[in-house]
Design a protein around this nucleic acid. Structure first.
Length: 434
RNA sequence: GGCCUCAUCGUCUAGCGGUCUAGGACACCAGGUUCUCAUCCUGGUAACUUGGGUUCGAGUCCCAAUGAGGUCACCA
C-alpha cells in the first residue's frame, strides 16, 4: 500500500486560529495512524500579508502541541518550481499571460465575468492565468464528505496562477507542491471546496495524478457565521494566554468535527492517533462551545500534580507571590479553577487584603469573629468554636470566610487561615470588628 | 445573485433499513457528600427541519422546499 503523506500548510499571516490547528491535528493523525509521514509547509506566497515572526510562531505552536514534522518546506524558497509549472501550462496552451489590473473584490462584490479579457491577446509577459475550458465537467470524490462533487467549468473563472511579482497563488503552489512532495491526502478547510475545480484542472494539464482530497467543516461562532477574532479569543495564542492547557485545547478541538464510534470523550494526541478513523469526520459545521472547553480544561488541570501546577500557574500569579505560599494554595483551588487565570479570582485574597462588604456578614458576626480571634490567639482549632458556643456551623464559618476573604465563595476557610498566617488573619478579623 | 456543502437534544455527537419506547458528553435542573463555592457520586428535563416518494418497514435511501455555512481577488 502507498505510504500516507499529509501536510499542514499554514500561512504566516497572523496568529494561528483553532480551526487551522485542528486541521493540523487531523492531518497528523491521518498520517500517523497508518505510520505515514507528516509534512509542515509554510505557505508564504503573499508577501504583503506576512507578519514578522510568523514562521517561528507556527513552528512553536505545532511543537507545543506535540506534533513532529518529518519534513519542512517554505514556499518562497521554491519559486522556480512554480514559475516552470506556470510556463509549461502556457506552452501547452492551458494558460496565458495577462496584464490586467488586479481586481478588487471588495469593491466589485461578486463578479460575473469568468473569462479574462487577456485570454487571446497572445501576451508574453505579466501574470499567468489558467485558461479554463468551456462546458466540461470536473469532479472528484471528497474523502471527508465521502461524496462525489462536480462542477461545470462554465462556472469556474480564469484564476491567476502566477502573480506578476513572480510568486504563485495558492491555486498553483498547492498543486505543484502536493505533487512534488508526494502528498497522498490533502486535508483542508471547507472554504477551499469552491476552488477545487481550478486545482483539478491544473492537475490535469500538468499531467499529475490527483491525490485524495478532503474538506473539513468550519468551526462556527455561537452568534452564527465563521469564528471571528473579534468575538472572543479564538486564536491559539489567545486561548493559551487565557489559561487554557494545550491538552484541553487539543481534546476540545478534535472533537469539534470528528467523533469516535464508541462515544469516548477524553483523548491525548497518542490516543487520537491510535483511534483515528476517517469515517469519524463530521459533515456539518460545529459551533464553538466555550463551556465544553472549560470542562476539558478543568479536567486536565485536575490531572496535573501540584508541582506541575506550580509551573503552570507561574504566569498568572499576582505580583510578588512567593512559591512556598503558592504551593500551599494549589491543593485548595485545584478543584475550583477552570482556567489558569482563575488563580487571581480564587486566591487573590491571600496576597491582598480584601474590602469587606458588611452586608455579606450575618447578624451575629461580631460574636462569631470575636470568638474566632480568641481561638486563633490561643492556637485553638476553629472547628471547636461553633460547638463550644452553640453557633450554627455554617453561619460561623461564613462570617469568618467573608471577614478573611471578602467573598462568600472561597476555598476552605480553615486551611486558608492557616496559609494566611496567624498575624494576618487576626489583623483582618480585627479590622472588620473595628 | 450564481455555484458548492450541510441538516439528530441548547451545544458537541452515536446511529450507517428492523435491536430507536433514539444512546453518550457539556450545559441546565433535582438529590447526596460538604463550613461556602467547587470537585465527586445519583437521578432528571431535552432532539430525528418540513413535505413528498422508495420499501413489508425510514432518523437511516431518493427528490423538493426551508434553513444554515462557504465561495465568486495578481489573499490564503
Amino acid at each position: 500500500m502507498k505510504k500516507i503523506r499529509t501536510r499542514f500548510a499554514p500561512s504566516p499571516t497572523g496568529s494561528m486560529h483553532i480551526g487551522n490547528l485542528r486541521t493540523a491535528f487531523y492531518a497528523y493523525a491521518l498520517a500517523k495512524h497508518e505510520d505515514g509521514e507528516f509534512i509542515l509547509r509554510v505557505e508564504d506566497t503573499d508577501k504583503k500579508r506576512e507578519v514578522e515572526g510568523g514562521v517561528a510562531d507556527i513552528k512553536d505552536l505545532v511543537t507545543l502541541f506535540g506534533l513532529k514534522w518529518d519534513e519542512f518546506y517554505i514556499q518562497s524558497e521554491r519559486l522556480a518550481l512554480y514559475k516552470k509549472a506556470a510556463e509549461d501550462l502556457v506552452k501547452s496552451g492551458h494558460a496565458f499571460y495577462c496584464q490586467c489590473e488586479a481586481k478588487n473584490a471588495k469593491r466589485e462584490g461578486f463578479s460575473s465575468d469568468k473569462r479574462d479579457r487577456c485570454r487571446d491577446k497572445g501576451l508574453t509577459s505579466g501574470a499567468i492565468k489558467l485558461k479554463v475550458p468551456e462546458n466540461e465537467t470536473v469532479k472528484f470524490r471528497d474523502f471527508v464528505l465521502r461524496e462525489e462533487v462536480s462542477w461545470n467549468t462554465n462556472v469556474v473563472f480564469d484564476a491567476t496562477l502566477l502573480k506578476s511579482d513572480g510568486f504563485p497563488t495558492y491555486h498553483l503552489a498547492v498543486v505543484v507542491d502536493d505533487h512534488d512532495m508526494s502528498i497522498s491526502h490533502v486535508l483542508r478547510g471547507h472554504d477551499w471546496l469552491p476552488s477545487t475545480p481550478i486545482h483539478l484542472l491544473v492537475y490535469k494539464y500538468l499531467g499529475y495524478e490527483v491525490p485524495e482530497i478532503g474538506h473539513l467543516t468550519d468551526i462556527l461562532d455561537p452568534e452564527g457565521g465563521k469564528l471571528s477574532k473579534r468575538k472572543g479569543s479564538t486564536s491559539v495564542r489567545g486561548l493559551l494566554s487565557e489559561g487554557y492547557l494545550p491538552e484541553a485545547i487539543f481534546n476540545f478541538v478534535i472533537l469539534a468535527g470528528w467523533a469516535p464510534k464508541d462515544n469516548r470523550e477524553l483523548f491525548t494526541l497518542e490516543d487520537f492517533v491510535k483511534n483515528f478513523d476517517i469515517s469519524g469526520f463530521q459533515k456539518s459545521n460545529p459551533i464553538f462551545n466555550r463551556e465544553k472547553l472549560d470542562w476539558f480544561n478543568g479536567h486536565y488541570i485536575r490531572q496535573k500534580s501540584d508541582s506541575e501546577l506550580l509551573d503552570l500557574f507561574d504566569r498568572f500569579l499576582p505580583e510578588g507571590a512567593d512559591a512556598v505560599k503558592v504551593k500551599e494554595i494549589i491543593p485548595l483551588i485545584k478543584d475550583r479553577v477552570k482556567k489558569l487565570s482563575d488563580f487571581g479570582p480564587f486566591a487573590g485574597f491571600f496576597f491582598e487584603s480584601p474590602k469587606v462588604d458588611k452586608k455579606l456578614l450575618g447578624k451575629n458576626y461580631r460574636d462569631h469573629l470575636k470568638k474566632a480571634v480568641e481561638a486563633i490567639e490561643k492556637n485553638i482549632s476553629l472547628d471547636r468554636v461553633p460547638e463550644e458556643n452553640s453557633y450554627k456551623i455554617g453561619d460561623f464559618f461564613m462570617d469568618l470566610r467573608v471577614a478573611i476573604t471578602g467573598s462568600r465563595f472561597t476555598p476552605p476557610i480553615n486551611e486558608s487561615v492557616k496559609i494566611l498566617g496567624k498575624e494576618e488573619s487576626l489583623r483582618r478579623l480585627r479590622e472588620v470588628l473595628e
